[in-house]
Design a binder for these strands. Sequence first.
DNA 1: GTCTATACCTCGATAGAC
DNA 2: GTCTATCGAGGTATAGAC
Lengths: 201, 201
Amino acid sequence: MKADTQAKDVKLKILDAAKKLFAQKGFEGTTVRQICDEAGVALALVSYHFGGKENVFYALFEAFTPEFLHKDYALAEPVEDLLSLIRDFARFRLAEPELINLLQQEIMMQSPRLDKVQPIVFALWKQLRAILQAGKATGQFEYESLKHTVHFVVGALIFTRNSSFFDQLLQEDGVQTNEDEETLIRYTSDFILGGLRYEKK
Amino acid sequence: MKADTQAKDVKLKILDAAKKLFAQKGFEGTTVRQICDEAGVALALVSYHFGGKENVFYALFEAFTPEFLHKDYALAEPVEDLLSLIRDFARFRLAEPELINLLQQEIMMQSPRLDKVQPIVFALWKQLRAILQAGKATGQFEYESLKHTVHFVVGALIFTRNSSFFDQLLQEDGVQTNEDEETLIRYTSDFILGGLRYEKK
DNA sequence: GTCTATACCTCGATAGAC
DNA sequence: GTCTATCGAGGTATAGAC
């Protein structure tokens, strides 16, 4: 019992460290040593608990995959559904920026590890795709290419991040830092709905 | 003379191979051996011609940086400027998808190599930022947060790519493959201008 | 379960023949 | 200028003490 608890703590410490480092330096750019140092545990424990660096990666997504990915949007109200999806995704991105970051890297480089993670992302994007189709059918959304529109929406959703790289360039305006979750969601929804030519009633 | 020509060929072969591999597997995930194999040259030549793997990376961006980044948009006509920028970027992305890919990876993971490449990207985004501001001043663009809007636009611009990862999911509709450059540019412009609530005259 | 010490491999870079 | 052979550093994974 006590042993189990200790093990869980260590596993969690490793996962947290790996999440941070993978996002920062990529999977290949991160060493097991760095992970264990960051976690404050011995080098051997990654292999002991996970069976290798690669399995840490997979465990990361199993542990942190959000529940909303399994949610089924009704498609009866495409606008409402899209707003829900934007909100769900924005919240996940705010809660787990490193995971989004890492995922985006892996997608970009078509990593071999993607095979196992693909279903998770696909679930979300298939829903987005269905919502966009439904919205076009009801005449509420206007676009020509479904494929490209999914790209645009995903791009807008995923790229909105607090990267110091950007902030260097972009901080120097209205100084509206510390905006809350709801504000960010509104900005995102406004832009995307505009891109879909949805007219607010 | 002949020696120079040969050297140039080898350097170019290495750059091409590195471009492809870096985009595919990331900088850290690519080995010098892989680069040389892909280029069909001996292992030692990366060090001989470039002085190390890291310098191959920098040479890549010096060699392939597009001229339009140095273009100055007039800002008298924000809509026209934005359309030009979208067009310029889309063309670059179609011509050099690997470079965009690699750049995005590096940005995501805030790589130490970014310091030397940062100015290139900043040049473009600063222009985008200025155009968005100008368009808001003339009342043609409508948005609340400049910072987030830049994010959205960049996201839409950068994420539109022919990735087999996406196509798996998205190929199965109108079967409008092989659309040309102009069509892609129109889709992108339509979405972004919509997001900015620009009303076509 | 956790640690240290180490085996074994592959990395980037270079020396030296051609 | 280009090659092969090799060095030293640093990678992952594991054996064995505690």
